[in-house]
C-alpha cells in the first residue's frame, strides 16, 4: 500500500536542481511527481520516480544526499471539495499530514501523503474504503 519516494538534499546553489534532474534523465529514470520544499539555506526535493532504488543508488554514487521514505498514494475524483473531504478523514482520526503533494491524470486526482502515523493512516484508508495506488499501479499510469 505504500510507495517508495526519494528525497534529496538540495543545496541552495545555482544549477543544483538541474544537475540532479539531468543525472536521473541520463540514466532513463522517469519522474512521475516532484515537489521542492525550500528554506533560505537548503531545499528538499521529493520525487516519485520510475525506479526509486536505482535512483537512490545513482545519487549516492554521485555524492548526493538522498533517502527513501514510504508515502501513500490516494486517489480521488478530480472535483471541488473531494480533496478537503478526504483529508478530513485523516484529521478526524487524529492523524497529522507531514507533507503532501498532488497531481492529476485524466479524471483522477492523486494525493501523495506522508503522515505522522503510517499504521493509523492505512487503517483510515481501509475503513473508509479510500482509493489508493500500489507502486506498480502508480508507475504504470
Amino acid at each position: 500500500m505504500t510507495i517508495n519516494q526519494i528525497s534529496i538534499f538540495l543545496e541552495n546553489k545555482y544549477g543544483k536542481l538541474s544537475e540532479i534532474l539531468a543525472l536521473l534523465g541520463k540514466e532513463n529514470i522517469r519522474i512521475i511527481a516532484a515537489t521542492v520544499a525550500d528554506t533560505s539555506e537548503f531545499g528538499i526535493l521529493r520525487m516519485i520516480v520510475s525506479d526509486a532504488q536505482e535512483a537512490y543508488r545513482l545519487l549516492n554514487e554521485n555524492n548526493v544526499n538522498a533517502n527513501l521514505t514510504d508515502v501513500l498514494a490516494i486517489t480521488t475524483e478530480s472535483s471541488a471539495g473531494t480533496f478537503a473531504s478526504t483529508l478530513a478523514l485523516f484529521t478526524q482520526a487524529g492523524i497529522s499530514i507531514e507533507y503532501m503533494y498532488c497531481f492529476s491524470v485524466r479524471e483522477k486526482a492523486i494525493l501523495i501523503l506522508r503522515t505522522n502515523n503510517r499504521e493509523s493512516a492505512l487503517e483510515v484508508i481501509r475503513r473508509q474504503n479510500l482509493g489508493y495506488l500500489s507502486e506498480n499501479e502508480l508507475l504504470n499510469l
Binding site: 528525497s7 538534499f9 528554506t39 528538499i44 521529493r46 544526499n65
Partner: peptide, 17 residues
C-alpha cells in the same frame, strides 16, 4: 557536509542546525 545519514524530515534538519 552531511553524512550518509540524511533524513528528509525538515524539522529534524532545522533542529540539528
Amino acid at each position: 557536509e552531511l553524512s550518509d545519514l540524511f533524513t528528509d524530515d525538515y524539522s529534524v534538519l532545522q533542529s540539528l542546525t
